[in-house]
Nucleic acid binder design. Structure first.
Length: 261
DNA sequence: ATGCCGTGTGAAACACGA
């Protein structure tokens, strides 16, 4: 089974590109982040016309997540147990959705950005990651052999090599120790990051500003974290860097993993 | 060339991203 994760930065602006990606990439499941659309605005036809079932969750112009599958899509769940909210009303944001696809619990996650180290959004990000860890731990405690994968934009660069120049990130989010500790804690809960070993030195995101892509100044912040039972089935992984090229590209590239049946 | 920020809202300027 081939599973991809991709922060598309607007599903409406990227509808044609997403369709073209499905046509050429032969993915069975696509986890999508940053829809930037509410449910009523979601372009179902992109997926319907290609034989993909799709579950999506969008509340407004921010965030938004979806899962498309051509190998079955059942028991879609919005959010996760204990997911923190944000804002004055502490409302849940559209940052998590999961579904059962061919026996695998696939999560599509858009981890909060954090904004600045002293911003309330940073504390929100850390709490969000910690509650996610608890939810995963509970899921694996119930079934240690569960096949599950956390796909998404984690907004954390776990290692120094995951940014082009650490000097550019002094005092910045994404590389701070608490964020990296939170990411590691997710792994310690019983998950393995399965893309890095197959894509050494690669990035998944390049800022639109400052010519980051042609300068090869990117970040590795998009991952697939698989449970042990699924991680042992990984055959290959790649990052579709071509997708970042040209007019109308998302600032993130798709991250694709092949799992043996 | 991969090329100097993009998307949504709403109709100018701002929120948000990382």
């Amino acid at each position: 089974m081939r599973i991809a994760t991709w922060n598309v930065n607007s599903i409406r602006a990227r509808a044609e590109r997403v369709g073209a990606f499905l046509d050429r990439s032969d993915v069975d499941v696509l986890a999508i982040q940053e829809l930037k659309a509410k449910d009523s605005q979601f372009p179902r036809e992109v997926f319907d016309s290609r034989g993909y079932e799709v579950a999506f969750h969008g509340l407004n112009q921010w965030n938004g997540v979806a899962i498309a599958s051509r190998v079955g899509l059942a028991d879609a769940r919005i959010g996760f147990e204990g997911m923190p909210g944000w804002g004055e009303d502490d409302a849940a944001e559209a940052r998590a959705i999961s579904a059962l696809c061919a026996g695998v619990r696939v999560h599509s996650l858009y981890v909060p950005n954090g904004r600045e180290l002293d911003h309330p959004h940073y504390a929100y990000k850390l709490a969000w990651l910690d509650r996610l860890r608890e939810a995963v731990a509970a899921e694996l405690a119930a079934d240690a052999a569960a096949r599950l994968v956390l796909c998404g934009d984690f907004n954390v660069a776990p290692r120094d090599e995951d940014v082009w120049d650490m000097a550019e990130f002094e005092g910045a989010t994404h590389v701070s120790q608490p964020e990296r500790d939170a990411f590691q804690a997710l792994l310690d809960a019983g998950l393995a990051e399965v893309t890095r070993a197959h894509t050494p030195g690669a990035y998944t995101f390049w800022d639109y500003q400052q010519l980051r892509f042609p300068k090869k100044q990117g970040m590795r912040i998009d991952f697939q974290l698989a449970s042990r039972a699924l991680a042992e089935r990984v055959a290959d992984a790649r990052i579709d860097r071509e997708e970042r090229k040209g007019k109308g590209a998302s600032d993130h590239a798709p991250v694709i993993v092949d799992y043996a049946d």
